[in-house]
């Protein structure tokens, strides 16, 4: 008995010793900055304010939440997140199904499809900015030659189109990630089940609906969770392609956070923006995880 307790204790110490470095790192680079940011939201850290350094309580939260700007930023962020996640997941699934088939050259295709994902966002943003350029962009040349437009259009200068253009640029880069995930899942499907279904007279659509789709649902969920979180935090592509313009048409929560901190020196306001964004992402993740768990139980 004592021997067992002793062993248990020594194992515990051993385990603590092993995880201690990661605890230190997590505390140092995640928890501590989060707490510091929380302090920023309650103490006036807006460097140009006449009340700098004073305790402000939740007044910055109130200010941001009641501002018209926040609502618009949130709407644009949601629009970007939902549409691009939808495109990436849908397109990713379609491409994965195609690449899951056996045909000559499929190996090379599978390799090529990963290239956009391997390109750094900075390069991707600059690349698409050139492609969409209103004066010499390839996109304009393509559409003009195809007879779809009469003259070169200003894709990133039109508030109705700019966000859509960023969605295209981002989806081009990130769809391959969905493809890889789906492809990996598809490779794991037991071929015998399909064979049995075929023998039972199920057509390709029924097989896809009743066999493939349920099987891919957990993967789809993972992709959706990951991408939603990432997209809510997206900043670089907006910074590179439009800087929030034209007329704020692409100003998202993250871009506002950046503007408040690094242009306006309103660190408290920026901290509030950052916290609210994190909060929304946390809630979304929680919902997804719940859904996933329920799905697993039902399945």
């Amino acid at each position: 008995m004592t021997k067992n307790v002793k062993r248990l204790k020594s194992e515990q110490t051993y385990a603590y010793a092993l995880i201690s470095p990661s605890v230190v790192i997590v505390l140092g680079i995640i928890i501590a900055p989060m707490l510091a940011t929380l302090v920023y939201t309650m103490l006036n850290n807006n460097m140009l304010s006449g009340h700098y350094g004073e305790f402000s309580g939740l007044s910055f939260f109130k200010e941001v939440l009641t501002s018209h700007e926040f609502g618009s930023d949130l709407f644009r962020t949601l629009y970007f997140t939902i549409v691009s996640t939808f495109i990436e997941t849908g397109l990713g699934l379609a491409i994965a199904l195609l690449l899951n088939e056996k045909f000559p050259g499929v190996g090379i295709l599978r390799c090529i499809i990963i290239i956009p994902w391997a390109i750094p966002t900075v390069v991707n943003g600059s690349l698409w900015k050139l492609i969409f350029n209103g004066q010499y962009g390839v996109f304009n040349a393509l559409l003009l030659n195809a007879g779809l437009i009469n003259q070169y259009e200003s894709w990133l200068g039109d508030p109705k189109l700019a966000m859509l253009m960023i969605i295209i640029a981002d989806s081009w880069k990130m769809t391959p990630l969905a493809v890889i995930f789906f492809l990996a899942a598809l490779q794991g499907i037991n071929a015998d089940t399909y064979e049995a279904a075929r023998v039972d007279g199920a057509g390709p659509f029924r097989r896809f609906y009743y066999l493939t789709l349920p099987y891919l649902a957990p993967t789809a969920m993972i992709i959706i969770v990951m991408r939603t979180v990432e997209k809510f935090k997206a900043f670089d592509i907006f910074y590179l392609m439009t800087r929030g313009g034209p007329a704020n048409a692409t100003k998202t929560l993250m871009y506002s956070t950046y503007l408040e901190a690094f242009t306006n020196l309103n660190y408290s306001t920026a901290a509030v923006y950052a916290y609210l964004t994190a909060l929304i992402v946390a809630v979304l993740t929680l919902i997804y995880v719940r859904m996933m768990k329920r799905g697993e139980l039902n399945g």
Binding site: G134, Q135, Y152, S154, L156, G157, T242, G245, P246
Partner: peptide, 13 residues
Amino acid sequence: PKSLEMIEDDVLS
């Protein structure tokens, strides 16, 4: 009209 997406270098070019 593309001025709305231009910075100085675009004007120059």
